[in-house]
Amino acid sequence: MRGTTKYGSCWKVAAQNRPPRSFYYSLSASTRKATALQDFSYAAATTIDEAVSLLSAGGDRARVLAGGTDIIVQLREGLRSADLVVDVKKIPELMALDFDPARGLLLGAAVPCYRLYDDERIAAAYPALVDSARIIGGWQIQGRASIGGNLCNSSPAADSIPSLIALGATCRIAGPAGTREVPVAEFCTAPGRNCLARGEFLVSLVLPAPRGGSAYLRFIPRNEMDIAVVGVGAWVELDPSGQKIADARIALAAVAPTPVVAAEAGKSLVGQPASEASFKAAGEAAKKVARPITDRRGPADYRTHLVGVLTQRVLATAVERAKSKK
């Protein structure tokens, strides 16, 4: 016991001293304590069509509920409001987790993170995505939080999005006009905004058959439970010699209003030896697409510097993983 602190007040200190979340995470940022949620109704859709009609009828006043780790906080803290919450976890397609080494991964939009790392085959096939799933909040958050929700919340600092982009994932979207597909790289449009139109929602994410190696790394000042100051996801494929890079994709978080693809950095690696010098050059190229802001998580020039360092490191891990598979 701390001599001078009363038990009661000491917990309040704990709640209020949480590390502040940045502008980049402002959709769930609050140090206020609020218990009661605003009033809304709840519907659990059991089919895609049912969800589309509920969401079409509700328009702006209806919100999808997946794991609730963003939306319940946002509703409680008054950052968003809704008249209707549509639970999508009873729709079979949203909870699908189908992996086939030859065809790829079909990841239902509401599948909680822990199911990804609990499946050894998926963890081995898509290590970048699993790196992300393991660090989104703590275990209790991962028991509920979905990759689909992480994407649809569309925070620039979301930890799964660079991995999804690097792995070449596509969104399967259902809506009043039927279904359509959008690359994850084109999904987010602004902080907290994405390309979903009225009545549309994310059904699943489709990842191509696993090739090469991948990794995700973020920088945070703590060991766990924090929002990325910068995040970098990378995927690489080696040529048959195993010494040169045949293809690469790199994506960044928390350095722009949306997650961004570092296209030049990826291209610069093609045909290059899988060496520290190449990784460093790619890091320099990645820094050029970073347009960070200065906030309490870090000044802009520091973030840009981190992009270089993390890109270099994440490429080394991705290459190591690609080699270990050969």
């Binding site: 709640a15 609050s30 304590k33 609730g68 780790t69 906080v73 822990y114 909040g137 958050i141 509920r144």
Partner: peptide, 23 residues
């Protein structure tokens, strides 16, 4: 009340979750 502290942890079908973030 926002998923950060874990004081509200329960097992939901055997999986630990923050009950403050479950309806």
């Amino acid at each position: 009340g926002n998923g950060n502290c874990g004081a509200c942890t329960v097992l939901l079908d055997g999986v630990p979750v923050d009950s403050c973030l479950v309806l």
